[in-house]
């Protein structure tokens, strides 16, 4: 596989959300109407390619469509227009998601591994490694609802990267961990890249983007303002 192979290829991708009453009420159903709702065009025609082994940063103000764009490439959010082609289904990593709140961290790891298609034996073998990587110590046997957001992020990152997905989408996940975990996860990303893994990284931490990414996409109101080498784009972004 050469580095010119594409990992993600998006053409004119549009994503819109309907908010307020986003599901029809009975009144609407009876009248045969679509529910009154406001449509937000979160991503309005975005075209970009990501090559295998590339780490691309995505920057932009809040609400510029960064997270939505990432989710669109996983197929979790339906596209309103355009096409999005991928080499393998990307693994999405966000801070807000939790697996099962009322279960312990250890149990969440096991469920996460089994759901990804591992056998019980294979999952058992891997669980200790994952626990080790989380660095959560005894807290791993506490229920997830007792976890801080940083601890959740650690657990989440560890589960999602345990099986080294080909394409990894990271949504501010590293920002919440403490320094030692950030170093560890950055290291894992480096390994991931070395194995020609592809990463899309959304972050407001420009230092982190500078450290990890060779290329940056700058989004504003659902459109690409600039797409190019990290230094160039970040210089323009910071000047704006």
């Amino acid at each position: 596989m050469t580095s010119t192979d594409l990992a993600i290829s998006c053409t004119d991708v549009e994503v819109s959300y309907t908010i307020a009453s986003h599901r029809p009420l009975i009144r609407d159903l009876l009248r045969g109407q679509k529910p009154a709702a406001q449509t937000i065009d979160a991503v309005r025609g975005v075209t970009f390619d990501v090559h295998v082994g590339e780490t691309v940063g995505v920057v932009g103000p809040n609400g510029s469509g960064k997270t939505t764009l990432l989710q669109a490439t996983t197929g979790l959010v339906p596209l309103a227009g355009g096409t999005c082609l991928v080499r393998s289904v990307p693994t999405f990593l966000g801070v807000s998601a939790v697996l099962r709140n009322h279960m312990t961290g250890r149990r969440n790891i096991q469920i996460g591994l089994l759901a990804q298609g591992l056998s019980q034996d294979a999952a058992d073998d891997l669980t200790d490694d994952v626990i080790d990587f989380t660095g959560l110590g005894d807290a791993i046997d506490m229920r997830m609802e007792t976890y801080s957001s940083g601890m959740r992020a650690r657990l989440h990152f560890s589960i999602a990267t345990a099986l080294s997905p080909e394409i990894l989408l990271i949504d501010e996940a590293l920002a919440v961990g403490d320094r030692s975990f950030r170093e560890k996860s950055a290291q894992r990303l480096d390994e991931h890249r070395a194995n020609s893994g592809t990463v899309l990284l959304v972050s407001h931490n420009l230092a982190e983007i500078r450290r990890s990414c060779s290329r940056v996409i700058w989004l504003e109101q659902g459109l690409i303002i600039q797409d190019g080498p990290t230094d160039e784009v970040l210089a323009a972004y910071e000047a704006s």
């Binding site: 990593l93 998601a97 697996l99 469920i111 996460g112 990804q116 589960i159």
Partner: peptide, 15 residues
């Protein structure tokens, strides 16, 4: 009740 799992990992939802 498994939206977290669904949004994080890809697996056949019929599971």
């Amino acid at each position: 009740s498994s939206l977290g799992l669904i949004r994080t990992l890809r697996f056949p939802r019929a599971t």
